[in-house]
Design a protein around this nucleic acid. Structure first.
Lengths: 135, 135
DNA sequence: CCGCATCACTTGCAAAATGCAACCTATATT
DNA sequence: AATATAGGTTGCATTTTGCAAGTGATGCGG
């Protein structure tokens, strides 16, 4: 798929401009979810065919790494790669926007302060707590 | 339309999680475009029915204000409201991500520095240069 | 090691969103 | 008056999404 333009905003939207991809990354980055069932159980109720498709795309794009769950042979383990974790600032900015402009959105404790202070440090700390996959 | 969840990221995605809405805001915020023809002329080649639909949604959501163009009675003038301009940080973060992670994305001069320095000041300066609508 | 539950899907089909091309109306220009 | 331009709308084909049901592999309790 050849991009519609060379605008970096457009490129980002061609990858993540849908209603589900970033929610999966959110679950990995902020809720530490790693399994299909875990993503399926999120409040937004993604359909399994869409979830399957998005995980495949995220894996193909190198944002997510998939392997067997070492604690349950039936389960697969999905983890962010460093490339996937690079979207945390985008997710955070969207969370901040939603929190300040949407009526019935939850407040994420500490988010506003984090986004005002040393973001880089906060993101690094968050990433350090994640069990990233490496390729 | 009742939101799928009260997650602020989800709420933001329900409003802007499509391939076009943020591009229109981009054109207003960064390219200073104000007319239907102007948006239509952008590199991504949006179809006119989609453009019409997105402008209507953005107006209904209070992100964009529409009036007659004072310099051409045939044209309508679309301008960001303050609420619409509040998405500039999200757009900028997406631009930064695209610029650093996508192969063939353009580089926006000064963006990386801006995003490392005093963002708030940079965003304020940008907004000051825009002719915002004010409802 | 048998039966049942769970995990990660896939399939089929209906509904909605998107994309394309043609057409239309109001205003401006010559 | 004729023509061009701005901002749409309409009809239709294609694509994406969503829902429900079904499938194969693995684990677990007896």
């Amino acid at each position: 798929m050849t991009p519609r333009s060379s605008c970096p905003i457009n490129g980002t939207l061609e990858l993540f401009g849908d209603r589900w991809s970033l929610l999966i990354l959110r679950d990995m980055a902020f809720a530490r979810k790693t399994t299909f069932k875990g993503f399926e159980a999120s409040a937004e109720k993604i359909a399994t065919n869409i979830l399957s498709d998005r995980l495949a795309r995220l894996e193909a794009g190198g944002f997510v790494h998939k392997d067997r769950d070492p604690e349950d042979g039936r389960a697969r383990r999905y983890r962010l790669t460093r490339k996937g974790a690079s979207l945390i600032p985008v997710l955070s900015e969207m969370a901040l926007w939603g929190e300040t402009h949407l009526r019935d959105a939850d407040t994420i404790p500490g988010l506003k302060d984090t986004m005002k202070g040393d973001r880089q440090a906060a993101f690094s700390a968050l990433i350090a707590q994640l069990d990233l996959a490496d390729p």
